[in-house]
Design a protein around this nucleic acid. Structure first.
Length: 410
DNA sequence: TTATCGTTGTGTGA
DNA sequence: TCACACAACGATAA
């Protein structure tokens, strides 16, 4: 028996069987959380046995049993010099962590995911149990059951989708849709994914990946990702929106790959599902709602403590400039020992103009996809006339957008 | 065909 | 803290 491990509980990786839900829904996965909940119903009870040692491995069929690979074998190189993430692995730690969270019944009863503080890092605003769920250290059904126990002991408690149980159901939602959607992890050939002509700009992508966008809020989050392998859900939203539909207009698959590599809770279905969501490629389509890389973080952490912790170069920047250090007068930059453009980068894009351009391009991509899916509504005769008059280029995307707006208004 | 509604936007004004 | 405008999408249920 491995040292430090005290109990083993049977693990249910998901609450439901995705295939069963798809079957109940007439062979198609439900595409909204609401319809998913309606079909799924109540999750089954977990198996409650405990073992004092690991159960024997059953028949592995054609597969060979190998020892657990080392970190180096997984391609992560020498990590001894890197900052150690503050999270320990294993089932014992998972159960301890779950117990610690659930002991605060008021916190559990009032939990609302969207109201969490993404800048909280000393004491994160969520349970941080996702890595344990991902690695099978914690059973989803067992966790769900334990939360229900807490709910039974209080008068009022929040409900899905925002509640703690709601978060486990989101997990199953993405498992179900991903299971029932061919090419779920890519844009091409993925029927539920908007086809969007993302830009190819390696320089901007690398700046985002390597925490050099010049937006402290964005860069701090990417540093936390690299050092800890975890950041708050809303912090993930900020950087995912920034990379894709918000500012840089870079393909969500590129960001997905970075998250998959660096997150300690990266999970194929959930990671891809959330990138589809944030890039407005699927599930969520309100592309006008763009997170500001300046004001979003500021409303939680006006002093910029989160930025100061993860970006030491900015630690002495006065609070009025911490989210926009390029606006600080040179004398202030000198005093803070942080010259913008030298000690910390200038912004790679201007958020005001970049987000405006992104909205425009998203509008064009959406209009174009509406034409593809339902050409009869798109005035095809006008379209072909336009195509001829513009030669090989055809109708520009923005003219398609205007055309669509007009035809819908009629 | 139409109406409703959706985990987590921002900026403004009271 | 709240309501509202902004400008507007699509899946689903009616």
């Amino acid at each position: 028996m491995a040292s430090g491990i005290e109990v083993f509980t049977p693990v249910s990786h998901t609450l439901f069987d995705p295939a069963e839900i798809i079957n109940k829904n007439g062979g198609r996965p439900p595409l909204t959380y609401q319809s998913f909940i309606a079909i799924a119903g109540e999750p089954p009870e977990p198996l409650m046995e405990e073992y004092s040692e690991l159960p024997p491995v059953g028949d592995t069929g054609e597969y060979e049993l190998l020892p657990v690979p080392t970190v180096e074998e997984l391609g992560y190189g020498d990590i001894s010099q890197e900052e150690i993430p503050p999270f320990r692995g294993g089932e014992t730690e998972a159960l301890r962590r779950m117990k610690e969270s659930l002991e605060n019944k008021e916190w559990v009863a009032k939990f609302e995911k969207p109201k969490g503080d993404p800048s909280a890092f000393l004491k994160p605003a969520t349970t941080v149990l996702s890595p344990y769920l991902k690695f099978g250290c914690l059973s989803s059904r067992y966790f769900y059951h334990c939360i229900q126990d807490v709910y039974r002991s209080v008068r009022n408690y929040t409900k899905p989708p925002v509640s703690l149980t709601g978060q486990l159901l989101w997990r199953d939602f993405f498992y179900t849709v991903s299971f029932g959607t061919p090419n779920f992890d890519q844009m091409k050939g993925n029927k539920i994914c908007k086809q969007i002509p993302w830009s190819e700009n390696e320089e901007l992508f690398v700046a985002w990946r390597d925490s050099r966008t010049g937006y402290p809020w964005i860069d701090a989050i990417m540093i936390q990702l690299r050092k800890w392998g975890w950041m708050h859900h809303l912090a993930r939203h900020s950087v995912a929106c920034f990379l894709t539909r918000g500012d840089l207009f870079i393909h969500w698959e590129k960001g997905r790959d970075v998250f998959e590599r660096l997150l300690i809770d990266s999970d194929w279905a959930i990671n891809n599902g959330n990138w589809l969501w944030l890039s407005c490629s699927s599930f969520f389509y309100q592309y006008h709602r763009i997170y500001s890389p300046i004001t979003f973080g500021k409303k939680y952490d006006p002093n910029g403590n989160y930025i100061r912790h993860f970006i030491p170069a900015l630690k002495d920047m006065p609070r009025e400039y911490i989210y926009e250090p390029w606006t600080a007068p040179l004398s202030i930059q000198k005093k803070a020992k942080c010259i913008i453009g030298k000690d910390y980068p200038k912004p790679v894009v201007d958020h005001e103009t970049a987000s405006k351009e992104c909205r425009k391009r998203m509008g064009e991509a959406y209009a174009s996809s509406r034409l593809d899916s339902n050409p009869s509504r798109g005035k095809p005769s006008n379209m072909s006339r336009r195509k001829k008059s513009h030669g090989d280029q055809g109708a520009s995307n923005s003219s398609i957008a205007k055309l669509m707006k007009r035809s819908r208004a009629e």
